[in-house]
């Protein structure tokens, strides 16, 4: 399946949020677990929305 630009953009958002969540989780000096929860939760959400876009594009009638 070829990803369209909307899907790429949503995946990019999820990736950035996941990366920031990982930084906050893995750098002990930051010590801010709330950031891990919120940015991590956001990453999961946008990944889910990317899945919705894929599902909709498969389900939509063609023609």
């Amino acid at each position: 399946m070829r990803m369209n630009e909307e899907l790429w953009l949503v995946v990019a958002i999820a990736a950035v949020w996941a990366a920031l969540a990982a930084v906050y989780a893995l750098v002990p000096g930051l010590g801010m677990p709330g950031y891990v929860r919120v940015w991590g939760g956001g990453a999961v959400l946008f990944l889910g929305l990317a899945g919705v876009l894929v599902a909709v594009s498969r389900k939509a009638p063609r023609g």
């Binding site: 369209n4 909307e6 953009l9 949503v10 958002i13 959400l45 946008f46 929305l49 909709v56 594009s57 389900k59 939509a60 009638p61 063609r62 023609g63």
Partner: peptide
């Protein structure tokens, strides 16, 4: 999109989708 009337969002449609997220 579910009705097959559009293959992608308009720019406003995409903005609404992202804003809702």
């Amino acid at each position: 999109r579910l009705r097959g009337e559009a293959g992608e969002f308009t720019s406003i449609g995409f903005a609404l989708f992202a804003w809702a997220g």
